[in-house]
Amino acid sequence: MDIDGLFFRAEALTLGFTDSSLRRARLSGELIAVRPGAYVTARYFHSLDSPQQHLLLARAMSDGTVLSHVSAAIAWGMDVWGLPLARVHLTTGRPITTRTTRRRTVHGTRLAPADFTTHDGLTLTTPARTVVDIARTATHTQAVCTGDSALRRGLVTAKALSDAVAAAKYRTGTPGAVRAVEAMTNRSDSVGESRSRLILQDQNLPVPLLNQSVFDADGTFLGRVDFLFAELGVIGEFDGSGKYGESGAAVRKNLVAEKYREDRLRDAGWIVVRWGWADLADPSALQDRVRRALARGARAPQPDGFFRGDPLPQGTPHRSRI
């Protein structure tokens, strides 16, 4: 079958397929039934990343019910690090007990008219309601990563989040949501930066400035840095996968440029400490590395030049549209 995307039984029949041919395609593994009467080819489904697969399943199961929680977050293009994607989440707005099946969870939480909207052909909770629903039901780190990405991409404002968490004051999990919303920022550029910030805050290390533009004494731009411990002269950099490009040539070129950038920062007197995804798996070791760098910075002269928190270019959502 040379069909890309989700299609339904009625569409297949108009294209000349029969119920028997659809059944044979399912048995052979060529076709996947995401729900009764809704199909996708295995070739197309396995070409998608996990959020895209979830969104395809959500489109098949939405049937007019409001998408919510992680499903709405993916539809809006938010980062959903660590959130389970096996089930589509929907909210009815009726006072029912939450129901969970193999492929979906239906919540009975109240929905005001301002809590949901339409986007890209789907009915779903607004970005603010979506972030707060996740913050009520997920871990602190998962919630902050999602909220940071929503703020960074301009999907929601800090005031909208504050209003949404206030409106949820009688719902389960709201105290955790309040704490998560307070920790969110629009100056985190990635999930890795969000997780790094939370790990550093966990041990009461000095609070860094986020994504600052650094200049030398002559006003020459040296680079935008992830974490800046200004008073101690230390820069922290998170190196995520894909940061330096996709192709081998691009990675080599960007690594050389990054080396020169770091050399210029060091020449200006900054101490630079770097870490990556593997380091986030051992928070204590990362905290100790940063603490040692801060101790070196406290003994060193102040760097030359200056820095400022320039507006950040609006982030690009991950590839979730299908």
Results as ranks from 00 to 15, higher is better:
Thr100Trp: 02
His69Cys: 13
Thr92Ser: 15
Leu83Thr: 01
Ala10His: 15
Thr18Val: 13
Pro95Tyr: 13
Glu30Ser: 08
Leu48Ala: 01
Arg99Met: 07
Ala73Leu: 09
Arg99Lys: 12
Ala86Trp: 00
Arg103Lys: 12
Arg43Gln: 03
Tyr44Trp: 15
Pro51Ile: 04
Arg99Gln: 08
Arg59Glu: 05
Ala42Ser: 15
Ala33Met: 01
Arg102Val: 04
Thr109Pro: 00
Leu27His: 08
Arg9Glu: 14
Ser71His: 08
Val40Lys: 04
Arg104His: 07
Ser21Val: 08
Tyr39Leu: 13
Arg9Gln: 15
Gly108Met: 10
Asp49Ser: 09
Gly82Leu: 05
Asp79Thr: 10
Gly64Ser: 01
His107Tyr: 15
Arg43Asn: 03
Ala60Glu: 07
Leu15Thr: 02
Ser71Leu: 06
Thr98Glu: 00
Val106Thr: 14
Leu27Cys: 07
Phe17His: 14
Ala25Tyr: 01
Arg102Cys: 06
Thr18Gln: 12
Arg110Glu: 11
Val70Pro: 03
Tyr44Asp: 11
Ala75Cys: 11
His69Met: 14
His107Met: 13
Thr98Trp: 02
Leu13Ile: 12
Ala73Lys: 08
Arg104Ser: 09
Val88Asp: 06
Ala58Gly: 05
Gln53Ile: 09
Pro84His: 14
Ala10Cys: 12
Leu27Thr: 06
Trp81Lys: 02
Ala10Glu: 15
Gly82Ser: 06
Leu57Arg: 14
Thr101Lys: 12
Ile32Asp: 02
Leu90Trp: 03
Arg104Tyr: 06
Leu85Val: 01
Ala86Cys: 00
Leu27Asn: 09
His54Gln: 06
Arg35His: 11
Gly93Phe: 10
Phe8Glu: 10
Ala10Tyr: 11
Arg59Ala: 05
Ser68Trp: 06
Gln53Cys: 08
Arg110Gln: 12
Leu22Ser: 12
Leu15Asp: 08
Trp81His: 06
Leu22Gln: 11
Gly29Gln: 01
Gly108Tyr: 08
Gly37Met: 14
Arg23Met: 08
Ala12Tyr: 04
Val40Asn: 03
